[in-house]
Design a protein around this nucleic acid. Structure first.
Lengths: 188, 188
DNA sequence: GTCTATATATTGATAGAC
DNA sequence: GTCTATCAATATATAGAC
């Protein structure tokens, strides 16, 4: 197998396992087994666990940028785009119920571990924050844009944590409904 | 030292370490060192890590019940009591910035580990949920009481996650202000 | 109740053959 | 690029002396 393809498979498997089991709870052996590699060969591709985490975060950043771009293409209005973000707790509802928000849980884990990659993980939040701020600015709320962006982020994190803890889809639907009503007062 | 006192010290140290570093990232050696015990002696008091976690959760449940009772004594109105809960993200602001919400982060970690004590940890959320529901019922909102309780819980978790990630106290103040305004529409 | 010594498994990581 | 064999450190946990 070519080096690049193997590397990609490793990042993919690590990404999934870090999300489902958490970073610290995932061992090299787990990732190697998922890809079908021996532990020894692993170090040819990544020399440390931190390096894999770095690659996983980079991959998630790229994936997030792609998703935000897609929302911009699909949704002509900034209000529609913000709503697309809000509804992600339903779109990815099953995963969030089982594993929480991939951004929130990674940030929480790395912050608690005081991990060196903590800042990189926060960049995932910042990506959403900046994008939301841009949409609120387009809605003519430039002055409060960052505050509103953080409010929407807080909504998604609160819903994700409780959805993960209680596994209650009706609760998620209700909260999305509340947020939709709140958003409608800010125009399309 | 008497057995009961040592046990209490262990639970206290474990509680603090589980909160600050996370459950999985805390070892027996860490707890033993914090209490000043040898690892060997440790197993006289607790036969497994799960047993300590169980004791820690029980201790937190008792502490939470005590805090809720205190709020009931100090705050004559249900609105004032709910506000006391909402403001906990400011009252415990420094800890939440550094370590997140003790209830939320423990629930998230145990859910991701698929840990057997996951249900017990969720009981901490349920305690707040039931208490908040009671307060909203007293406000004459019996029919929506649970929905409103979950909404307030989601607020606190969303704020805690982002406060932990961004360490921004102004954000917390703004969100508490928003919630205070929202609460005021439900009476005292 | 507390200690030292130890068993056993798993971790992240390396060396060297193929 | 992949493997087996191995290392050193750490983890949970036990045995037995004091």
């Amino acid at each position: 197998m070519s080096g690049a393809a193997t590397r990609e498979q490793i990042v993919e498997a690590a990404d999934r396992l870090f999300y489902q089991r958490g970073y610290e709870h995932t061992s090299f052996a787990d990732i190697a087994a998922a890809v079908g590699l021996s532990r020894g060969n692993f170090y040819y591709h990544f020399k440390s666990k931190d390096t894999i985490l770095d690659a996983v975060i980079e991959s998630r950043l790229a994936g997030t940028r792609h998703m935000l771009q897609q929302w911009e293409n699909e949704q002509p209005t900034p209000g529609g785009r913000i709503l697309a973000f809000v509804e992600i707790v339903l779109t990815n509802g099953a995963d969030i119920q089982q594993y929480g928000c991939p951004v929130g849980t990674l940030n929480t884990e790395l912050a608690k571990l005081d991990h060196s990659m903590r800042g990189q993980a926060r960049g995932l939040f910042t990506l959403f924050r900046d994008w939301l701020r841009e949409q609120f600015t387009l809605l003519g709320r430039a002055e409060q844009a960052d505050e509103l962006a953080m409010h929407v982020l807080a909504f998604s994190q609160g819903v994700a944590v409780l959805s993960h803890a209680f596994r209650d889809e009706e609760f998620v639907r209700r909260e999305v409904g509340r947020m939709r009503d709140w958003l409608s007062t800010y125009g399309k």
